[in-house]
Write a protein that binds this DNA or RNA. Sequence first.
DNA 1: TGCCAGGCCCTCTTTAGGGCCTT
Length: 210
Amino acid sequence: MLANSIVVLDFETTGLSPAQGERAIEIGAVKLESGIVTDRFQALMNPGRRINSFIENYTGISNRMLAVASPCAKVMTDFASFIGESNLLAHNASFDARFLEAEFARLGRQVLGEFTCSLLISRRIYQDAPNHKLGTLINYKNIAADGSFHRALFDAEMTAELWLIMLNDISERYGLENIPFSLIKQLAKTPKAQINKLLTNYASKITKAV
DNA sequence: TGCCAGGCCCTCTTTAGGGCCTT
């Protein structure tokens, strides 16, 4: 079903915009290879300043926890080794991509893999869902959730499970055995009204090729 | 708590506005 590997990641941060000086405070990620979780990464990181009470309440991450965490530079250096040149996935990837790029830029690094977004795919595949928040989609697809949302590793794990189910649903709906990353990239930017045509045509080409 | 930002996406659109998502 999923031929290539991908790293599913999630950041907890001090706010919404690295351009406004916000920093990462936790990174969580799982590595998927052929649809199986083969590795995990989780670390809190000290942003060098206190976080506000909203972020403490929202994430459950306290200033006391961050005071004893490694600095962002150490954690992000380790994370760069973890992801290597893997392609990347996140729920609302534009948010996580901005923070990954910003934290890497502080280290003189660049993101090597390509991002895709489970939010954009879910809006196309699950048009009847109540909304497309991660937690809502987990309930919508009856995925067991035994943990705390808004913690990085748990959200990454949930995004990965949702991702595999989305790929499976696409596979079943259109009779596809493999869904290459290139098709996912195309799917994420195709208007909703053209999704059926895109996937039907792709399935037709695959069938003819076989 | 919900504004800050930014990209996507819909519509009462495209010379724009506002909701959805992420923390």
